[in-house]
Design a protein around this nucleic acid. Structure first.
Lengths: 222, 222, 222, 222
DNA sequence: GATGAATGAGTATTCATTCAT
DNA sequence: CATGAATGAATACTCATTCAT
């Protein structure tokens, strides 16, 4: 999963939330059950039957709220976004653009990303999986990655203009490659089942990132 | 798909090749049909029936040679490896260790990788997909990535010792991150359906890579 | 099939009966269809498809109630038991133990058994067949036979103690052999397709049984 | 399996034995492999493939000698017969008719039968199974039983005429029932997997048999 | 809204049997 | 005669989705 998420402009409008409290409870129970079942069984193996069972609602009720496994998965991702876009995150790098020490901005952004990913690693891994199976989710994922990369690209370009970063780089390639580096790193590490030291990983990745861009690394960070 | 592949120590011994020429022809026809069908339909959608049809053999004959879709896929990957490990590839970076200009070694290794990936991009993308579905293939993939990263790690360490690369980096993290950067880049680009300029991509990635490691980039390469 | 049946302690707990009347109707229709199809085609030849068709339910519905041909067969046997254990049967021989004329007890027990067997001969023959194919059913059958034989053994021992039966016999062997004699007789006769005269068969078998045990046969019965 | 076997008048003429020594070796290897495989897997589970593999001949070669699983099974039974009809056996009861002590004749016949059955119990049990599946084998089995019973019937009738056996019995019923008693007893015992004491079983069964018929049991045998 | 039974399309898989070499 | 690859008929089984109550 690359970078931040959120691409609500790609799918059909979500249906309105249920009118009654009972309805809202059922819908929520289904979402939570889905999170559990997807994390446990993966997307392909997860059966709607199991989700309904885990939510303690009748099988038929599933269709009152969602029309397919894909749809409930997308709804789950939307819930996820709220946490991934936690306050501050978006501003990590813009801060950088606003004159703070660039290396610190990079470090903060990477640490936030690693932490968010780890918090949701089970479902993030499933997201990777679903992206390979479902075109809509694939586009969602690529769009999210690209949007994130585009944001980085702007920052990199700004740094190049202000002499902070190596002007010889192609900002677009650099942004794509470096965001990919981080997301691939954390995915591979999570998928292998191993845990990892977020602080150390964030440091090392930020060091590589800063070096790659030619951004100055404060001496005490080496 | 990350880095080079090959993990024949991970799965059960393959069954012996068919004794007769006719048998070998059938097996080969199935493998080629599988390549086509997987590339066209993806792994989940591919039906064994279609593979047998495409190979012009009876459905039952599929089971003479392979016992499942997973098994024929793994056999396919093994064929792929031979091309991915094409002569010279393995030596790209060892050359670097042997005293050639390090940046040139990096560039050559990256270009070779990008070209091999593009040559097989359809099946490489399916490999990514299958890895999310099948544990054996997942391990195969992670092992291949790790093996590749381990090779890079040795080179990086050597460069650090000889003053070519930044000694402040953790060689292991750097190797994981940078190999992941390249493979993620090429996967994302290929998956988006867009084509890309191998030469330019190799240059830019190598530049980032060299910068990240603190390896000197020859002036004419900037 | 040897002796009386019933071994509900041998298989896994049956799933709960359907909650709705409609469900109970479907389940029952499947059981009745299974009885017909098994009796007509035998166990091996019976196809689940045919059972579902005969029950006028969709094929998939079969699996709502039973998970295999074996399982529906066992359910069928349990229904059968209720009739085989019809009121009075169990007491036939205990009567004997309570002081009625022993020969009359034997005669009544044998006649009841022959009649019950004939009433269900088609399915009883299939039971024999399934027992040779399915370990669970085999154990069910042997257990049923053994339980029946054990009951007879108690009676024989009682008769030996009270001077009614030959004390030189081993009650266990005698019980096994004589119950087997009756069940084998009726199976063989039924399987040959011929019908038989229950009254005469019961008389002759009881005569042999009584003679074998040394039980006095009333003169008018000779 | 009831009584002695042999009913070569029921099936089509066997094909001539192979002309060459090599052919005879193959045929014999298949028969021996079949015996092993049937005993291990039962008839339904046994696959022709496995028999050919066990015999170390090509699958296709099976059909050079036998045209089906049923056919090789019948051939196996014919081999069996030679041992079941071992010298003396047939005469056991005729001896009885010729003036020896009847009880001793019964005892010898039963002991011979139990011993032969035990020697071949694995395949005898399979024979029971096949009889429930295959009409030809079923008829073979019933015919064998009936023939044996018919032989006993003659003896019983002779004993009745000479005042040795109870004239009140129906010789036909008695013969059917008593031969069935023995074969059922040994089958049930063998199928339960338990071993048994042939001498004791033969004594007890003979005692029951003699008592049932009203044949005098020598005092030292009680 | 909730329930849970009914539906049936869609494929994998086995293995006896044939036949070209 | 031997070989072993090719054939394809025949069914079981799953599970998303619908719908009567």
């Amino acid at each position: 999963m690359d970078g931040a998420v959120g691409a609500d402009d790609l799918e059909s409008r979500p249906r309105p939330l249920p009118a009654t409290a009972r309805g809202r409870r059922s819908r929520q129970a289904l979402l939570e059950a889905a999170r559990t079942v997807f994390a446990r069984d993966g997307f392909s193996e997860a059966r709607i039957t199991d989700i309904a069972d885990a939510a303690k609602v009748a099988h038929g009720s599933f269709y009152t709220y969602f029309s397919s496994k894909e749809e409930i998965f997308v709804a789950l991702i939307h819930e996820l976004e709220e946490d991934l876009r936690s306050p501050g995150r978006d501003d990590d790098l813009r801060d950088g653009a606003r004159g703070h020490e660039p290396y610190e901005s990079i470090l903060r952004a990477n640490r936030d990303y690693l932490e968010a990913y780890r918090r949701h690693s089970a479902i993030m891994i499933v997201w990777e999986q679903v992206a390979t199976l479902d075109t809509q989710v694939e586009r969602l994922r690529l769009a999210a990655s690209d949007r994130f990369a585009a944001r980085i690209e702007v920052v990199v370009r700004h740094w190049q203009e202000t002499g902070v970063a190596d002007p010889g780089l192609d900002a677009r390639y650099a942004a794509l490659a470096l965001t990919g580096m981080v997301s691939n790193f954390v995915y591979r590490w999570s998928a292998s089942g191993a845990d990892f030291d977020v602080t150390r990983a964030a440091e090392q990745l930020s060091l590589l990132w800063a070096n790659a861009l030619g951004v100055r690394v404060p001496p005490h960070r080496r």
